[in-house]
Computed example of a mutant assay.
Amino acid sequence: MHTFLNYLVVLAVAALLLGPSLYGVARERRIDRQLRGAAAGRSKARRAQKSSSRSTVPSTATW
């Protein structure tokens, strides 16, 4: 019975020590995915903007 409790204590201490680190790694990966997605969206928008056949000169018509 004491051996089982010792294992539980070791697992609890390991969880307390590793928990914040694992949470931080998961958070960093999520942020990296968001940054990659934003960069991909931005590059797609630039490609669509460059391939447009419309003129980018503003109209000078006045009313």
Rank of each mutant, 00 (worst) to 15 (best):
R54L: 01
S43P: 00
R54I: 00
G24H: 01
V57N: 07
A48W: 06
A40L: 08
T56P: 03
T56K: 15
E28I: 00
Q49H: 09
R42H: 11
L18T: 10
R30C: 01
T3D: 14
K44S: 09
G24K: 02
M1C: 02
T62I: 04
E28G: 01
R47M: 12
A48L: 15
A38G: 05
L8E: 04
T3G: 10
S51Y: 12
T60S: 07
L18W: 04
R54K: 08
V25P: 01
S55C: 02
L35R: 12
A48P: 01
G37C: 03
S21Q: 11
R33G: 04
E28V: 01
D32M: 06
T62S: 05
Y23T: 08
Y7A: 13
S53K: 14
V57I: 03
R27F: 03
K44T: 11
S21T: 15
T60L: 06
V9Y: 12
R54W: 04
P58I: 00
S52G: 03
E28H: 05
L17R: 14
N6Q: 14
S51E: 10
S55V: 00
S43W: 02
P20T: 12
R47N: 12
G24N: 10
Q34K: 08
R36T: 13
D32T: 13
L11V: 14
V25C: 02
H2A: 14
L16W: 08
I31V: 15
R42Y: 08
L16K: 02
L17H: 04
S51Q: 11
V57Q: 13
V9W: 11
T3R: 13
G41F: 03
A26S: 13
K44Y: 03
L35G: 04
Y7L: 14
A48V: 12
R30N: 06
S21E: 05
N6I: 15
A40Y: 02
P20Y: 02
L35A: 09
A12D: 02
V25K: 12
A48N: 08
M1T: 02
G41R: 11
R30L: 07
G41S: 07
A61Y: 03
Y23R: 13
V13W: 09
Y23L: 08
V57E: 11
H2R: 11
R33I: 06
P58H: 12
M1L: 09
A12T: 14
V57R: 15
L11P: 01
M1G: 04
V13N: 12
K50Q: 09
M1W: 05
R46G: 06
P58R: 15
